[in-house]
Amino acid sequence: MSYVMVALTVVAAGLAIVPLVAILGYLIKQGAGALSLEFFTSMPKPVGEAGGGMVNAILGTLILIGIASSVGLPIGIGAGLYLAERGGTRLANLVRFLADVLNGLPSIVMGIFAWEFLVRPIGHFSALAGGAAIGAMMIPLVTRTTEEMVRTVPQSLREAALALGFPRWRTSLQIVLRTALGGIVTGVLVAVARVAGETAPLLFTAFGNQFFSTKLTQPIAALPLQVFVYAISPYDEWHAQAWAGALVLIALILIISVISRFVVRSKHGRAND
């Protein structure tokens, strides 16, 4: 009985990774065929013409990540510092709970909220609205990692800084935050990887753009949006481009994930020597 059940857990673990292998395998097979240097350097071709690239969408995604980070990082890190330093208060517990709830907010709801709040009053779609929408999705993730990482910094280090005449704010920023930086960077990269692939919040904010645009007040193309539009189109050339775009998106996210693991490792390495 016991052995059968243990074997079943092995089977379950195996089945759990089958879809991943299937998805990645199929993605690489389909995407690699459509991918070329041109993909990174050219604009999309009109319907019916093969080839072309997504340089506008790749750049757009990077710009959106930039806007999102400048919204999400200060708020997330600041709120995380507050939770770590003011941990026990009732407000802190509420904020922590709400951050976790916000983390589970459906991305489409964030999308319609951003439209109602940022697009409708202004009157048109914009890169800023899209970036702000996915930046808001970064906040809970960054808040919780910052809190967890700052908590691992020993109290004695804070006391040492205070006793040297460091004001609280410098103790927090120059000693505590700097000591916890490795872990925080990891958390930030995980958050960036997550929002880089977000599509739903961008549908009615950044909107997408078939042309080359870097204007923050105008609609902007994004890789996941482009993949979506091409995937549901009826054209085979566009399907191929969608696969190539998806492969680039996954590669981008994979690279960010690997870097984040490397950051953790190097941090531990330093602590041990």
Binding site: P154, S156, L157, E159, A160, A161, L162, A163, L164, G165, I175, R178, T179, L181, R270, A271
Partner: peptide, 16 residues
């Protein structure tokens, strides 16, 4: 505290 220095039981160098 800038005029009154303090050293603790365990060493507390700033690791960064």
């Amino acid at each position: 505290r800038r005029h009154v220095g303090m050293v603790f039981q365990r060493p507390t160098p700033f690791p960064t």
